[in-house]
Design a protein around this nucleic acid. Structure first.
Lengths: 198, 198
DNA sequence: CGCGACGTTGATTTGCCTCAACGATTGTGG
DNA sequence: CCACAATCGTTGAGGCAAATCAACGTCGCG
């Protein structure tokens, strides 16, 4: 491991730490992994993905904040926010190689690390541990989604909002109220009314 | 491959076909895989899992129909139905080894194949392809859950019901209306009213 | 500075829930 | 095999949570 490699690794600290929560990489593996990464800066309000494109990479947020949403004639529907250390993408489009149904854009200036699908396949081939990593990643995402479905069906808007604030306290900083309302599945007016009642 | 093994494999046709949708197994691998399976019959209304237990296995439905639900003071909330060729479990409990929040019971006499967590770990060790299989499995489940969250937030009960019927036409056979209503997040009365308006 | 986006408030409407009552169906014990 | 109970689907009346529509003040940004 030479100093060039070390330099390279420091800027990838976030993502390496994230990966190391579930699998252990030695230095060569880390170096190979980061060599697959493509870095990208997205300006506020710019798009990382648009409906109709094919989502060809998995994305990790190194700083900033992204938002994925679905759009139809009845409006936009926010699926997910992704801050630092979150993964995001249009999974369906990525897996099935069909056109994306989601838009992904930036609420702030955001830096992401992307690994293309073909490089992901190389990665799985060369370091099979990553199959495990992304399986665990998917499992955790699935658990969160199950919780969200449950909440969406069983809780009134007030409780959903309180849970949201408790679960993602940091999201409040960047995310406008109307987006939180949208994510929670209520109108901004109604969320505003809820907050007015402390 | 001797005839004993062949005999063993035929009764595992469903699950092997299911696995082979995403990964290819040779005969030895198939034999090893099925050797990990524990078979279980669940009578109608009996439980496969109860709240508070730890979910120690992944479950595949060979025939019949299961139902997973969450229970609290406000009642029961159905998370999922699982017919033939579906996988089911309390993922959170399984992954984190915490007590289950879900009940799983049978709507019909049901046969399941189970693989315990410790055997799953052996399986991942010995046939790493299975990491891939379950990663894909999780990805697909996640895609479904995303769709469901979207529907739950954007569609009125009538549309949700129509989509349900279209997506899972076979579920109608076994599953009582009140359970479908519960799964969709509406009252049986309301669903009944919806159906009355053709 | 002026425009547009955002958060707030209020009046009205609506989708869905709650509660209650009633046949029809299923299942169970005698 | 029947009688009875329990469960299920349906219908209707009344109530509530949240949507819709509209108006208004504030703020950030070009």
């Amino acid at each position: 491991m030479n100093s060039l490699n070390l330099m390279k690794l420091t800027q990838y600290e976030n993502i390496l730490t994230n990966v190391n929560r579930h699998i252990e990489l030695d230095d060569d593996e880390s170096a190979y992994f980061v060599s697959l990464i493509q870095k990208k800066i997205i300006k506020k309000k710019d798009f990382l993905l648009r409906e109709g494109q094919i989502c060809k990479a998995v994305t990790f947020v190194n700083y900033g904040c992204l938002r994925s949403y679905y759009q139809d004639d009845s409006g936009t529907h926010i699926i997910q926010f992704a801050e630092v250390n979150w993964w995001i993408g249009d999974l369906k489009s990525y897996v099935q190689e069909t056109s994306a149904q989601l838009y992904i854009d930036a609420l702030l200036k955001t830096e992401v690390f992307q690994i293309s699908k073909s490089k992901m396949e190389d990665l799985y081939e060369r370091i099979p541990k990553f199959e495990r990593f992304f399986r665990i990643q998917m499992e955790n995402a699935l658990i969160n989604h199950q919780d969200r479905i449950l909440q969406c069906q069983t809780l009134k808007a007030k409780m959903r909002y309180e849970n949201f604030v408790k679960t993602y306290p940091s999201f409040h900083q960047h995310i406008p109220l109307k987006d939180i309302a949208n994510y929670l599945g209520v109108t901004p007016e109604h969320l505003s009314a809820i907050r007015a009642r402390y």
